[in-house]
Nucleic acid binder design. Structure first.
Lengths: 139, 139
DNA sequence: TCATGATATTATAATAATTATTAATTAGTA
DNA sequence: TACTAATTAATAATTATTATAATATCATGA
């Protein structure tokens, strides 16, 4: 059974605050892999007193709780994703949008790495770069 | 036949300077995937007048020439690698060192992505995270 | 070989993302 | 409802990276 943020925060001894809920929900409700600043701007109308530092701190907390993942696709800032199901990411080199790649199986690949290293593997991150259909047309 | 940096720079209309050669060689001669600052510090004794901005600019130039690749492993700064052969990277979550993963075939995985997206794929980057043998012992 | 001009480097300032600090606020418990 | 520790907000500080402008240097052709 899946626990919600509220329960998870509380179970770990973290306080449940409107800011935390709002930031997590903002991430849950988008597929855009926003940056901290983007989340901040999106929430600002509803939470006019919220500080950007709170966004950063909350994102760190949520990441530590494995509720969200942090992405770095070679940009100047990090992106965040509340989708914790197994999936990978692709960034368009023209418009810089980041999309999910679902339903692609990397298990064989991962197993090969597990077999060939003496590391205890904890996680992995696969990034693809190319030009999206939209940008292909618009050239 | 493989061209060296000097020829490649000259062919593309870039000037061949001691700084560029030094930075490229520094990268060629290490497996440590250093950051810009690390390269700078390493070269400082031999090139005392060199500026950190030159390191950054040179790394950008070399990257544009496809002579080096830029890595982002979720850290606060980028790492650089002059090994352009097909390989992947693994970072130890304890000591933060980054090692190469050679001889692991991702082609099937990549083909799957090519088939399932409408992107024109240009490149990809696979990062693994775990604990290295050394850090496992030392716990 | 040397002068020329374009490019590169240096030094420094500027920018931008992120983190640290601290006082005020608030969630959760007694 | 009152208390206390955790959290937030406001702001300053830090750090990686980029931009600017003056000087220096590479590479071409006379």
């Amino acid at each position: 059974m899946k626990k919600n943020v509220t329960t998870l925060l509380r179970d770990k001894g973290f306080k449940v605050t409107p800011q935390r809920i709002a930031i997590y929900n903002a991430l849950l409700s988008t597929k855009e892999h926003p940056k901290a600043e983007t989340i901040y701007n999106k929430l600002l109308p509803l939470y006019p007193t919220m500080s950007l530092a709170t966004v950063y701190k909350t994102l760190e907390t949520l990441s530590n709780l494995n509720l969200i993942q942090v992405l770095n696709l070679g940009e100047d800032s990090f992106r965040y994703d509340a989708d914790m199901s197994t999936h990978h990411h692709i960034r368009c080199l023209k418009c810089d949008k980041v999309e999910d790649l679902h339903g692609i199986d990397a298990q064989t690949f991962i197993n090969e790495v597990t077999d060939k290293t003496n590391y205890t593997l904890q996680r992995q991150q696969f990034y693809f770069f190319g030009v999206c259909p939209n940008c292909q047309k618009s050239h």
